[in-house]
């Protein structure tokens, strides 16, 4: 219980604040709880299957295989795969974070991880279809197309700005166990 309180300190603080609002301004308070609830429902719709798939990927796919396609020496295959993976995704950007963690664990090149992250943020195909129907095909397609060189450039700048030891720290954080490589 004490541990729970400590871990969820910030969350519980925000909820207490919400309760105060609910007391002072019931209408706004109810809306806050309504929005918070639907945010949680959206998150629960996306994250559990993502985490299950990542857990399976982690235990079944050897590091060597992933590195061949997206590692330091994968060449052009890397960013192309990153863009395809990001574009095939759906859901908010936070869904990409745990995926990137497993990528790091499996030795995916830093540049490719950032390309993936940027692609997820703005190249998602399901979103593109939504955007087309709301804002027009020309608007949506133009934005999608100019985004590709932009994210490659943004990822390159980030990749060059980080010092080798900063990247190493990033990989070290996730280096833990590679279950698939143990057997």
């Amino acid at each position: 219980m004490k541990k729970f309180l400590k871990i969820y300190k910030v969350f519980l603080l925000i909820i207490s604040f919400d309760l105060i609002i609910l007391f002072l301004d019931p209408e706004k308070g109810k809306m806050i709880f309504h929005h918070t609830f639907s945010n949680f429902m959206e998150m629960l719709g996306i994250l559990p299957p993502v985490f299950i798939l990542l857990g399976l990927l982690d235990t079944w796919v050897p590091k060597k295989t992933v590195m061949r396609y997206m590692g330091e020496n994968a060449g052009l295959k890397g960013p192309v795969l990153s863009i395809l993976l990001g574009a095939a995704a759906a859901g908010p950007l936070y869904g990409a974070f745990p995926v990137a963690e497993v990528m790091a664990k499996k030795g995916v090149k830093y540049y490719n991880i950032i390309v993936f992250l940027c692609a997820w943020s703005t190249l998602k195909i399901p979103m593109l279809i939504f955007e087309m129907s709301a804002l027009g095909v020309k608007f949506a397609l133009t934005r999608w197309l100019i985004n590709i060189p932009a994210i490659l450039l943004i990822a390159a700048v980030i990749d060059r700005s980080l010092k080798p030891d900063e990247k190493e720290a990033f990989y070290k954080k996730y280096s833990g166990s590679n279950a698939a490589d143990k057997n």
Binding site: I7, Y8, V10, F11, I14, I15, F17, D18, I32, F33, H34, H35, T36, F37, N39, F40, M43, L47, P48, F51, I52, L54, G55, L56, D58, T59, W60, Y94, F97, P98, E101, A179
Partner: peptide
Amino acid sequence: SLAKAYKSFSSILPDFASVLALVGI
């Protein structure tokens, strides 16, 4: 795999919960 999935989910859940509650406001 499931143990790993659960571990990474529960370790990030407190931060997620805070962000989602903040977005609610």
